[in-house]
């Protein structure tokens, strides 16, 4: 088996808050191979965005990150000094944010911002950088790319700005792209186009991608691997087809029942819900974090939760197959 491009073991993120420590991410593991797309899906506060920032080394100073291992193609990210991280960011791994309006600098032209990273990281001239920028803008489907270089971000629509962000992330041909809710702020038709673009480019350039999203529809369509995150833990991980076809953790199934499925869910019928709320992440959680909302919770859920399933498709639950078959039988 090939060596994964990114390998994370026991990643923990702690944020000091007024009344103690908020354990935002509680010991998660994942691997990502070249050319693969991993979707981290979860609701707000699950720690998915912090996870991506932790990989990029972009967490704030007050936030504490620890990991047994965080290996990016032989570089140990837990020990990398700021200079090494700066070299990696932009050149070998880059990030696409949710809100293209705030992540582009309004004071500089599109061309300046596109070429900046390339000029910084690679020994290329200004002309070559501009040529590369035009090439990429065309690749992300922007017409009249040459003339766009002298435009400012406010002159572009939201969809175009997000395309520029993608082109910017691709300038140095990174091996890893982290996209945090890249299409959430966009309209549905634009969302489909942007996702398709990311998907195709990833395949074409053999890039690994981590896509952070709350949208299960997006996950199902673009992910190779899925990681479902709840209260700072990965409750279920596996190939997209397995996770969606045989969702084993009760939380994953609960989420899937919440969304109306055109053609499958009866129109106007009552949708599934997950009662209760996410537990407070300040302090320790005893046993399974989902037990306060889980229909199958029992006393044993307060103890250590085993990881079940195969190496490919794993989930954390004390019940065999997370009561999936029992649930399907009653349905």
């Amino acid at each position: 088996m090939e060596k994964p491009l990114l390998s994370v073991r026991n990643l923990t993120i702690d944020i000091p808050v007024g009344g103690g420590t908020l354990h935002a991410v509680r010991g998660i593991d994942f691997d990502l191979n070249r050319g693969e797309t991993l979707c981290i899906v979860g609701e707000s506060g699950s720690g998915k965005s912090l996870t991506s920032l932790a990989v990029m080394g972009l967490l704030g100073k007050t936030i504490r990150r620890t990991a047994d291992r965080m290996d990016f193609d032989g570089t140990d990210l837990t020990r990398a000094n700021p200079r090494t991280m700066r070299k990696l960011r932009g050149a070998r791994m880059s990030m696409i944010f949710q809100e293209p309006m705030t992540s582009l600098n309004p004071a500089y032209t599109i061309g300046d911002q596109l070429t900046e990273a390339l000029l910084l990281h690679k020994p290329v001239g200004r002309e070559a950088a501009r040529a590369r920028a035009v090439e990429l803008l065309e690749k992300v489907g922007i017409t009249a790319a040459e003339s766009r270089l002298s435009q400012y971000p406010h002159q572009l629509s939201g969809g175009l700005r997000q395309r520029v962000m993608i082109a910017m992330a691709l300038m140095c041909e990174p091996e890893l792209i982290i996209a945090d809710e890249p299409t959430t702020a966009l309209d549905v038709t634009i969302q489909a186009q942007i996702l398709r673009l990311l998907y195709d480019l990833g395949r074409e350039m053999n890039m690994a991608m981590i896509l952070i999203t709350h949208d299960l529809g997006v996950v199902a369509r673009v992910a190779d691997k899925v990681a479902v995150m709840y209260a700072g833990e990965l409750v279920e991980t596996g190939p997209a087809a397995d996770v969606f076809n045989t969702p084993s953790h009760p939380y994953t199934r609960g989420l899937l029942r919440c969304i109306p499925l055109p053609g499958k869910t009866e129109r106007g019928s009552t949708l599934g819900t997950i009662p209760g709320i996410v537990p407070s992440l300040v302090g320790d959680i005893e046993g399974c974090a989902f037990r306060t909302r889980c229909p199958y919770a029992e006393a044993a859920c307060r103890s250590e939760i085993p990881r079940q399933g195969s190496a490919g498709h794993a989930f954390r639950c004390i019940h065999e197959d997370g009561k999936r078959q029992a649930e399907e039988a009653t349905a």
Partner: peptide
Amino acid sequence: LTPEPGLGV
């Protein structure tokens, strides 16, 4: 985009 894997974008 419905949560149905394998259909692509």
